[in-house]
Nucleic acid binder design. Structure first.
Lengths: 336, 336
DNA sequence: ATGAAAGCGCTAACAT
DNA sequence: ATGTTAGCGCTTTCAT
């Protein structure tokens, strides 16, 4: 690989002149400019970003940490991040923890050593984890999940509202006895969606049967297993099931079908997330769209701002508004 | 951020001693070792990988270029890559071209400048593209797709066999008039799957109606649109449709349903890829598994070998064997 | 066993 | 307008 030194020799100019034409950081006479650009072409020169980074203390690289790229919620988010990174000549180092929580620390160390300009994190839900991030001193923005009392840079959605949209739809369809299949209450999104469900039910004057409110995880298995549990423990089944996420709804529908219960004929099922292919699921899933692509995009744009500002800028929390997506899993309006 | 210099001062030793204890590259007396490690802890020192990379000419970073992370075929592959990278303290820069072919060149330049140690490419199907890669001089291995006559490092699957497995299954189910919904014939996987289909049909003594062999793309829309086309142009519909990929099958099933045709009752549909959630699709899709996670894993392992060998090692082509996955979309055996 | 010093490829302050 | 030079943080010969 040719270096700037090679160019300067070939073009018979100084190093700083080469640097000046490459970075257009100072006026260079057309004469010398041509000699330099010619040499660059001839030697097929490419600047060495590592050397530049060492000098400039910036790598134009960011780290993205997610829990599980296999969860269909994340690919659009990652695509959103990558798209804006690409537009700004930034690169994205993908860190996929595969739900192994202790991988986070290792990734953080690696990112620190690699001198990334910033971090995008989609799986920080506890103060302990946040603390680890803060200790790195890196610039960062949190996506989707956040610890209690967190008031710094963040891009997420209105989770309470997402449940409300879901419940409203179910109520409009005429369902009254509605179950909630939730997630891990250590995660704010799970807490907020759960409380949105409960408060919205109350708002409608509907009872929430505690036996019909389940905790779980953001996984298909969780939905499946909770259905089994419900079938065992609950005497009177619900008319509808409101879930914390599409993958959970997938598991719920699978569990229901395995038990010979038809969706939506016997029980309606509502998703939340609007994952890819939910439209084409066993029974096309009604859901609430969270535009995770948009979240990715906005978080990267925010991070770029944070990186580029010289003095610390005021923190921002961007909360997107979810929207209802009606398909078939909650049947047609029973009131009309 | 503390540097090695800070450590050497604090511990009152030379730079090379600090380096020696960090890299365990030379014997250092217990006495000095302790002083150094203490200083490292006290100053919370982290080695600067950028500086190290500049000196060592290796970044422990690789670039991964894929066409579209939204295609469910890729996340498992990326996860496989990332998992073995993680085990070797390598980082993965994700390059998602979003099917914009001209993004490839830009990514290649960026990867060159960033001095990645190697490249994993899942979308190189033409000699022209391969040429671009070769010009970078970077080490690389191709995944899944490859240009004609390519005989270098590669990890893929036996595409011909994947079609044969599909056809065999359909024939076993009693179908005789079988259509093929293919992909872009510029891509070897599409060509091989198509020719596997045709030869296997012949093997069974079955006619291939040219009007029932479609070209297309690896996308849902392609399957959907080709169904429309078929419905318009073909007088006698097929009993079964063999597709080049699950996403195409998704589109096919959607198109069929929209036209009031039931799957598998009226027409059977066979996937190929076994994407995530195919199991939970509108009608659970019978498919052929390609273990894209395994492909990712093996390709990264191969790349690491290539990177670590001093002298050029013999090229390797790893061809995985696909396996049939029977679900519901091709009905039950009509012969029994 | 430890230290001094050169140099990886670049940028930027300074000198001319 | 162009060139000289120091230095980013590290590794690695070469002395001692």
């Amino acid at each position: 690989m040719a270096t700037m030194k090679d160019i300067s020799k070939k073009a018979n100019v100084s190093l700083s002149t080469v640097s000046a034409v490459i970075n257009q950081s100072a006026y260079v006479s057309p004469e010398l400019t041509k000699r330099v650009t010619d040499a660059i072409k001839e030697l097929n020169y490419r600047p060495n970003a590592v050397a530049r980074s060492l000098k400039k203390k910036s790598t134009e690289t960011i780290g993205v940490i997610v829990t599980d790229i296999l969860n269909p919620f994340y690919p659009p988010m990652i695509k959103g991040i990558e798209d804006v990174a690409f537009d700004h000549n930034f690169n994205v180092i993908l860190c996929n923890t595969s739900n192994e929580h202790n991988r986070i620390s290792t990734y953080l160390e690696l990112m620190l050593e690699k001198q990334v300009d910033g971090l995008l994190l989609a799986n920080i839900a506890t103060s302990a984890d946040l603390n680890e991030i803060e200790k790195t001193g890196l610039k960062y923005v949190l996506i989707n999940r956040k610890p209690p009392f967190y008031d710094k840079n963040f891009v997420g959605i209105n989770n309470t509202l997402s449940s409300e949209l879901a419940v409203n739809h179910l109520v409009r369809q005429g369902y009254k006895r509605i179950a909630f299949f939730g997630g891990d209450l250590k995660i704010n999104t799970a807490r907020e969606r759960r409380s949105g469900f409960i408060s919205c039910m109350m708002e409608h004057g509907l009872d929430v049967d505690p036996k019909l409110v389940f905790e779980g995880e953001y996984s298909l298995d969780s939905g499946y297993n909770n259905v089994k549990k419900m079938l065992m423990e609950v005497e009177q089944l619900p008319e509808a099931i409101c879930t914390v996420s599409d993958v959970v709804a997938f598991g719920v529908i699978k569990g229901l079908r395995d038990a010979g219960i038809r969706v939506p004929d016997d029980i309606a099922v509502m998703g939340n997330d609007n994952s890819a292919f939910s439209e084409h699921f066993l029974v096309p899933l009604s859901s609430v769209d969270h535009s995770s692509y948009e979240m990715g995009k906005l978080s990267m744009e925010l991070l770029l701002q944070v990186i580029k500002e010289k003095e610390a800028m005021a923190d921002r929390q961007i909360i997107l508004t979810p929207s209802l997506v009606v398909r078939e899993s909650c049947g047609v309006n029973r009131n009309t």
